[in-house]
Design a protein around this nucleic acid. Structure first.
Lengths: 147, 147
DNA sequence: GGCGCGACGATACTCGGTCTCTGTTTAACC
DNA sequence: GGTTAAACAGAGACCGAGTATCGTCGCGCC
């Protein structure tokens, strides 16, 4: 994602007021490459001519998340981060080195996995999370020994 | 898992001292049904004739995790929890109602998913997490309308 | 039994996230 | 454009999970 308007329009459509703080948030989120933490936004917001409060960051992220504009990911080290994303069901790959992330479409494994799990366990699955961690092409190239 | 000895033996084999605190921890972890939080153990430990310190809880869980005896899961609400588990690669289904959890074997989708992701994104995937959330058979039965 | 090191518990601290309060801004209506 | 109610923002207190520190304890080895 790279267009703040997409975010502000979505807010508008959902009936949320268009406020200065939210426009700043939309810009910031749109400007992120890959995963970002609430703290990152807080720091970046402080750099703008007019900061955005800690509470506002979280409130806005909550709204964005409810609108499906960002999604929480849980990193292997237990940290919580967010990624901007499109609405359709999908998963993320997160680069463990640079933090960049990318969406992966549905992969088609969801229904299979769900069914398998239901069969094996008797659980009625209603949601799931799949997260992949690894090296993005750039980091991969950068760390490859030049032998 | 339901046998504290399995845990203490594993500690022993790995060269860790067998201490009172760790035996209490082993008992507690073995007694958990499904997911549990560090805080749960802390509370339960306090109830034993001799409590176990906060730091020790975390230290022990860290050790157990490094030995593959417990595994961290991240609940949809962002909470961190643990589940006792066997060593082989597997995933978990967590009941969103009662918190019970169950292991699901490897499902066979891991290599497929990995390959798909690598193909589509160019990332070199080195780990992943799959977590399913839903209702366990009991909760499912309990919440089914009797119509 | 004595010794050394690893483990222990208490507690202070950090940090991410939430809550509350009060003043400000927005948008709808006139 | 002015007014007003409701939504929103920001500051900062608060909370809870997890970590760090430090003096003491006890396990395992000799």
């Amino acid at each position: 994602m790279s267009d703040p308007d997409t975010l502000t329009e979505a807010l508008d459509r959902a009936g949320y007021h268009s406020t200065a703080a939210r426009r700043v948030m939309a810009e910031l989120v749109a400007a992120q490459e890959g995963r970002f933490k609430a703290e990152d936004l807080l720091v970046q917001a402080r750099r703008t001519r007019r900061g955005v409060g800690r509470a506002t960051i979280f409130r806005s992220l909550e709204i964005f998340e409810s609108l499906g504009l960002v999604e929480q990911v849980h990193l292997p080290n237990g940290e919580h981060a967010f990624v901007a994303c499109e609405r359709a069901h999908h998963h993320h790959v997160v680069c463990t080195q640079c933090g960049r992330s990318q969406e992966v479409g549905d992969l088609g494994i969801t229904p299979i996995a769900r069914e398998l799990v239901e069969q094996r366990t008797g659980y009625l699955v209603d949601s799931h999370r799949i997260e992949f961690f690894g090296l993005c092409p750039e980091c991969r190239a950068a760390t490859t020994p030049q032998a």
